[in-house]
Structure formats: structure tokens, C-alpha cells
Amino acid sequence: MLSIVKRILGQMKNDKRSLGLLLFAPLLVLTLLFFILSDSSYVPKLAVYDMSEKFVAELENHATVSEETEKPEAADYLEDNEIDALIWSDSAGTHIELLEKNSKSAVALEAIQDTNKALQPTQKELIIDYVYESTGDNQLDSLSFVFLGVISFFFVFILSGMSFVRERFGQTLERMLMTPIRRIDVIGGYTLGYGLLAAVQSVVIILYAVYVLQLQVEGSVALCTLVMILMAFSAVSVGALVSIFANNELQLVQFIPVIIIPQIFFSGLIPIDTIPFGLGNLCYLTPIYYGCTALEMIMIQGKGVVEIWPWLAGSVVFIGVLFLANVTALKKYRRL
């Protein structure tokens, strides 16, 4: 088993590009997400027709406002002038016309609501408090557990899956199995070898996220790292298992929409209990669910080992089951 571990580490040492991709590609993706999801300073562009001077004056504190003397046709006007919303009033009330529902229209509506709130200061305000509230300024903070888990899992899955496909088609697997090595040692060596690389990746990702991107972690960073390492080990096993069903590297890539994307739905991106037809229960079959839930509890809720142990245990059970499945699947190549 140790021979395989040493070989994998040796291969990686001589393959700087793969090593670089394993360690730095996740950091690049995280950095991009950090900027993409950061709070934007976007000022909405609004147009008003026949609105009170007081309203317009207040609205100008929240948006760029243009006043129209004639009521324009909303669809063409909004599109041609790149206006986010047209506000006008008649006897029925105040109308707000928006092009489509998206993040820009949300910002426009927020500006209008802020204006209304400022004009009616006597109205009692709704005070909303979250038990687990992100104190960070970045939207990434509230979804960091999803991205950390999914990104790490994805890159390790690709690496281990591709390596196993290459082993099979380069006949090195057959050659290896024509030695007295046991199947359990082959899978053990693989899991440990790529697992060690994945563990290094997990440490790099979590340190970068916490100390460079300054993502919020309410609980223990060390515990986060442990959870990510467990996820990485399960990603190695999933990659190895899936590779058995792939006849070439292209087919392994084609498995990504089947294996990875559905898992993202159960990562915490969508609340499980809002998924209809009981489909949310499928989460128990996905390793990402256990890892991301544990990460969420640590990073957002500040929970410790005592609270997250069922999810840690779930990850460990998953690794064990996948390990045995891989050992059994190797029978296809050697019965002993």
C-alpha cells in the first residue's frame, strides 16, 4: 500500500501542472466568487413620471433619477435607456414597472422602499434578527460552506477519477494486479495517496478562505479543515468508483452532471425541506450533504464536535462504504 502512496506522491511531484491545478485552481475560483458575490455599490437608474417633488427629492438620495414629462411606453423605454424601473402614479396608486426580476430590479425596489420609509418615518419598522447572522460584508460569507465543500470535492473527484481511468487504459492497473498485491491494498494506497494530496488542498483552501479572503468562521477552523479532509477522502473514493463505469476520460467528464451537480442541490444551497416530492431525502445518499452540513454548522452556527458528530460519522461511513465498493469493483480486473 505504501508503495502506491509513494508512487502517487512521486507522480504528482513530477507533474507540476496537475499539482498547481489541484492547489491553486480552487483558490482562483474562490477568489472570483469572493468578488462576484461581494456587496456591489450599484446605484439603480430610475425614471419617474408625475410623482411628487418630495418623493423625487428623497429618491435621489437612493438612486439616479430622471424625470419624464410624458409617460413613456415602459418596455421600450426601459430597454433603450437602460433604466431599471419606471415609477408613475395615477388614481389607482403608485406603479412601478421593471423589465425583469433579477438582482438589479431587487436593488431598484430596495431604493424605492427606502424612499417610502424615509417619507413615512412614523410607521413602525419591522425589526428582523437572525439567530445565526453573518457579520461579514460579503454574500459569500453566508454560502461559504457550500462553495468550500463543493469546490474541494469537485477538483479531487476529477483528479482521482482521471487517474484511475488512465491506470486502466494505460494497462498499469492490469500490470499492478499481476503482482501479489491485494485488492484492498490497491484501493487503500489510492485512497491514502490521493487523500493526502486532497488533505493538503483542503488545508490550503481553508487557510486562504479564512486568512486571505477573511471569510467568517464562527467555530473552529481546525474542525472545518477536518471536515474538508473527510470530504476530500470521499471525493477520492467517488472518483475511483465512477471511473469504473467510464470507458475513457471523456466519459468521466460526462459523469460530472450526473454525479456532482445533483449533489450541489443537497449542499445547503437550497433548504432540503423545501424540495418537493420528498426528493430532499436523497441528500442522505450524497457525501457532499454530510460535509457541507457540518461545515455550515461550524462556519455559520459556531457549533463544535458535540453537535456535528452525526455528520462526521455520516462522512466516515460513506468513506467506508465507498472503500468496500471500490475493493469489490476491482474484482472486475482480478478475482483474487
Binding site: 508512487r7 512521486g10 507522480q11 504528482m12 513530477n14 507533474d15 494505460g170 494497462q171 498499469t172 492490469e174 500490470r175 499481476m178 503482482t179 501479489p180
Partner: peptide, 17 residues
């Protein structure tokens, strides 16, 4: 298998080693 040596048709070597 410990008594056998096998050379497959492909080279079956690790390219990065």
C-alpha cells in the same frame, strides 16, 4: 503472481515517473 513477470502489449508504465 510473485513468481511471474508480465509485460503487456502497451508499455504500461507511469508517464510521470
Amino acid at each position: 503472481l510473485a513468481e511471474m513477470g508480465y509485460m503487456p502489449q502497451n508499455e504500461a508504465l507511469y508517464e510521470e515517473l
